[in-house]
Nucleic acid binder design. Structure first.
Lengths: 144, 144
DNA sequence: CTGTTGCTTAGAATAGTTCTAAAAATAATT
DNA sequence: AATTATTTTTAGAACTATTCTAAGCAACAG
């Protein structure tokens, strides 16, 4: 299962600046996590990210990976994508876009933002047909 | 948290016919579950449904509630809505529509189908503002 | 230094869901 | 009807993703 298929070219980002810009305090672990996460646009689970970090030789606890992903989400650095009850992905591409999820392969693929929803049907990934479209508009109470 | 707010009027459906029409074998437990689930349009978790069934005096195991919801989903009688890693709702309204989810209250509210996506913003529930729109288009491999 | 605050950690706890293996119900076949 | 096969249900165990807990550590302020 390919989690990393992306239409956009990989782009090296300045993770330190990103964190500062979003009001995230810098720590050793957060730098390590951010460097791995933002190395390229990708969709990863907390567990996959934990492994990716391990592969760099750095040691960060799983709790910190969860904490950091939660923090990054609250600060708007990443987006959570809930595919099903046991599949939460974190999208390191924080630009405005949506996703194709292939129920057969597990592939999660970006939908280019310019695609109007009614044109999606004509732009499905090769060899796939539409299954279910689930649009969840999350709203929040206006604080008074 | 009100899970049951619906725009459409409650409608008593013939659950036996629904199951037959969708190729679901009839059993005592499935009838009980279907009667509770389709009594009105609602969004329920497996656990909530288990409790609702219990309240009718009938006794159905939790495993059967899960099995039956899985079966009903595969057969197209209900739709799963994944709000987050620990919130899977089953929507007993199987007509084509989407949802507003209020992150503050937990309310899950139908979006009338006629609403074009770009008009959603002008039609948010009272006292709420847009938070996150997550559109996941599920596709499946074309079997050859 | 010393206290305060925030961060990280390992492991325990939690919660939703799936699995297992056996019993029960139902359907099919003789 | 009796027997066999198939499907369904069940209780509880197992599993898995995530959160919690409580202790230790790091950074910084006074």
């Amino acid at each position: 299962m390919d989690l990393n298929e992306q239409q956009q070219p990989p782009q090296k980002r300045n993770t330190t600046q990103m964190m500062i810009a979003h009001g995230v305090n810098l720590t050793k672990q957060r730098r390590i996590i951010a460097d791995v996460l933002f190395e390229r646009n990708q969709h990863v689970t907390a567990d996959q990210l934990f492994d990716l970090v391990k592969q760099t030789g750095s040691r960060v606890s799983k709790a910190t990976v969860y904490n950091t992903l939660g923090l990054f989400t609250r600060k708007g650095l990443v987006r959570e994508i809930f595919i099903d009850a046991s599949r939460t992905f974190y999208d390191s591409n924080n630009s405005h876009h949506h996703h194709f999820y292939n129920v057969d392969t597990g592939d999660l693929i970006d939908i280019k933002d310019r695609l109007a929803p009614h044109f999606i049907e004509q732009d499905l990934p090769e060899g796939t047909s539409m299954d279910i479209v689930d649009l969840v508009v999350r709203v929040k109470n206006i604080k008074s």
